[in-house]
């Protein structure tokens, strides 16, 4: 009998998106596609709802949100704080705790480090960036800390940007919901993001890769200018590359909990952080994921420190806003296109 609250990632598929959020459901699909994904588990929106219900937070949340208007940032900030404080005081339900502890234990002995991320549901998942639902807690260790991080993700549903976003959509009355993804942490030597097309030019034959040293936070958060590679899907050749100065990186905190932002050794700052075989592996994975989902994907990945050939995908989602060149030639007959070359096309082409 599968749980409605917590479930291993490899038991999820796209159909579970409404219950577990897009991130968790996509990771389940990736595992089915045999893409290397760190093992983990997911919490459903039901877990969040159980939390709100058992702690009796429902009314308090509704009250805090009532009467807010889009532009009133001070009021939104106060409401966010009120709700956040109330949520942090409330305990995570025992049923959720038990299942989290069980699944966490299955990930390994000695409190293995995990990443805890929000997994947005429904329309929010398309605009998760705007909705402020991109909370990520890295290098979390111990079942108790995992539960705390889960609760922090839930709190992020009521961050000022998230409240503002829903106000703009006119969803004031609707109580939001959210899933959470918990995944084994890869101690990344290099990590980054890749698109299965060139997001700048719109070229569908390219994989665009951004990469920097350490955990993915620095690239995702825009804290470094990452190395920039453009690789042909068709021939796997490197079409363009820009190696930038990567001065900071995130590494596991020496305390054993969380990630620390540290300076990159000067001699490594200007070093190209991916070699040809690594690029080749990334492009192979990108194509596999793109084919599987049938649309362009925005993929977060990491290369393990203890295994340079170990490439892991930690997240994928559809590319939503793709830059399109406005002057893309229309699909016309070959002859009329040639006529246009000579200025002999239809009047509108001249």
């Amino acid at each position: 009998m599968t749980s409605q609250l917590v479930r291993p990632l490899d038991q999820l598929s796209l159909g579970d998106e409404p219950g577990f959020g897009g991130k968790s459901a996509n990771l389940g699909e990736l595992l089915a596609a045999e893409v290397p994904v760190p093992p983990g588990f997911a919490l459903s929106t039901a877990a969040f709802e159980a939390f709100v219900h058992e702690a009796g937070l429902s009314d308090r949340i509704s009250r805090a949100l009532s009467g807010l208007s889009v532009g009133n940032l001070d009021a939104i900030g106060r409401a966010s704080q009120t709700i956040g404080e109330a949520m942090r005081r409330a305990p995570v339900p025992g049923s959720v705790r038990t299942e989290v502890a069980e699944q966490y234990a299955a990930l390994g002995a000695d409190d293995p480090p995990v990443a805890v991320r929000s997994s947005a549901v429904g329309e929010d998942s398309q605009d998760a960036t705007f909705a402020g639902q991109q909370e990520t807690y890295l290098w979390v260790r111990g079942a108790e800390h995992v539960c705390e991080a889960v609760r922090d993700c839930w709190v992020s549903l009521f961050s000022p940007p998230a409240i503002s976003y829903r106000l703009r959509l006119g969803e004031r009355a609707h109580t939001p919901a959210m899933g959470v993804t918990v995944q084994s942490m890869v101690d990344a030597e290099v990590s980054g993001v890749m698109f299965t097309c060139n997001p700048v030019s719109g070229d569908p034959s390219m994989v665009a890769i951004n990469a920097s040293w350490g955990l993915g936070l620095a690239v995702v958060g825009g804290e470094v200018t990452p190395d920039d590679y453009l690789v042909s899907k068709v021939t796997r050749e490197l079409v363009r590359e820009h190696v930038h100065t990567k001065d900071v990186q995130y590494v596991p905190d020496p305390s054993g909990h969380g990630a620390a932002r540290v300076a990159v050794a000067p001699e490594r700052q200007d070093v190209r952080c991916l070699d040809a075989p690594a690029l080749e592996r990334l492009v192979g994975v990108a194509r596999k994921i793109e084919r599987y989902f049938g649309c362009h994907q925005d993929i977060e990945w990491a290369v393990a420190r203890d295994d340079p050939e170990g490439l892991f995908v930690v997240q994928t989602r559809p590319v939503t806003a793709l830059a399109k060149k406005t002057e893309t030639p229309k699909a016309e007959s070959a002859m009329s296109l040639i006529m246009s070359t000579f200025g002999a096309g239809k009047p509108s082409d001249n």
């Binding site: 390219m206 042909s232 079409v239 060149k325 040639i338 070359t341």
Partner: peptide, 26 residues
């Protein structure tokens, strides 16, 4: 010459319009 280069050139431009990063060599 003009027509031959024109037909080939149109193909090149078409490729670059729809596949902006395609290497000329391909």
């Amino acid at each position: 010459l003009l027509l031959g280069y024109g037909a080939y050139g149109t193909f090149v431009e078409f490729c670059k319009g729809h596949l902006p990063d395609i290497p000329d060599q391909h």
